[in-house]
Simulated assay, not measured.
Amino acid sequence: MHKTAGQRDPAAAFPLAHGRDDAGERRQANRAVAVSAVGLAATGLVELLLAVVTGSVGLLGDAIHNLSDVSTSAVVFLGFRLSRRLPSERYPYGLERAEDLAGIGIAVVVWASAVFAGYESVRKLIEHGHTDHIAAGIAGAMLGIAGNQIVARYKLSVGKRINSGTLIADARHSWLDALSSAGALAGLVAVALGQPWGDAVAGIAVTGFICHVGYEVTRDVVHRLADGVDPEIVTVAEEASGSVPGVVHAHARARWTGRTLRVEIEGWVNPELTARECDAIGHLVADQVSRRVPAAGSLTWIARAGPADPGC
């Protein structure tokens, strides 16, 4: 006796046609993190040395921010390592969320950098601190701009290629460092032109840049952890599923776990269909979703018996 759609198991997972090279993506991510950490460490140490020599708080804030990127790189690396864990009874989806949780570490470091840079800048402005060796400071700020732009572009490219929200957030952090370096440069130029307060004001401006990116990084991390997705993903997934013969109505949900976009489709079908026929429809749905939603990495098909009420 055949099982009908109303009697079958409620859900089934189907492989998508465009399988991901997860191991290759992890290698790319780890390489991006390692290369950027080395580059930022070198840039930050040079800037820190020049900040001590010149007494520039703008350059000091930029140096601390660059060196903080090295610590966030370590957090990102840890997140990628933990996300390799296989699913278990305690963690049925594995630890892919570790990549998203690593984003929290990045946000914390960004905000801590903002507090430190802001404190030092306000203190220098109040105490009328001096800045020396302006040319050396300008060279250090220019080095910061170049180094951070290169690192940010590299990490952003890899992050988008492998759909890593954490790596993209880390790239934005590095992009901010380039802007903060530009702010430090502007302050030093102002000092060179006879405006001694320029460096302290630049430090405050750098703090503003840091706060802006801190807000963006925090917003993106919270969005992912709260299972937020682009509404268009759900709309397209429902349209793709509904276009499959035999699917009367489809309802989709989606969420990110690390770099994996998990899509769940509830499809209402003829209650007289057998389990085999429902599975066949599920495979067709998986094929359509993989074509229309290329970012999808996992699909769960749930067959519901009977015509659906579109108002439900």
Rank of each mutant, 00 (worst) to 15 (best):
G198D: 09
G198E: 08
A200F: 11
A200W: 08
V201T: 10
A202Y: 00
A202I: 10
I204F: 03
I204S: 14
I204L: 14
G208C: 08
F209A: 09
F209C: 09
I210L: 00
H212Y: 14
V213A: 09
G214K: 12
Y215H: 13
E216S: 12
T218Y: 06
T218I: 13
D220E: 15
D220Q: 13
V221T: 15
R224H: 12
R224N: 07
R224E: 09
A226E: 13
D227C: 09
G228E: 14
G228T: 07
G228D: 13
V229W: 01
D230Q: 04
D230G: 01
D230W: 04
D230V: 06
V234D: 02
V234Y: 00
T235I: 07
E238T: 01
E239F: 01
E239S: 11
A240H: 12
G242T: 07
G242S: 09
P245M: 02
G246N: 06
V248F: 13
A250E: 11
H251T: 13
H251G: 05
R253I: 05
R253G: 13
A254N: 02
R255A: 08
W256C: 02
T257A: 14
G258S: 08
R259E: 02
V263H: 04
V263M: 06
E264L: 07
E264I: 07
E264W: 03
E266V: 01
N270Y: 05
E272T: 14
E272R: 12
E272Y: 03
T274G: 06
T274Q: 11
T274H: 10
T274Y: 11
R276W: 03
E277H: 04
E277A: 12
E277C: 05
A280G: 07
G282A: 10
H283Q: 12
H283F: 15
V285K: 10
S290I: 08
P294E: 12
P294M: 12
G297E: 04
S298H: 15
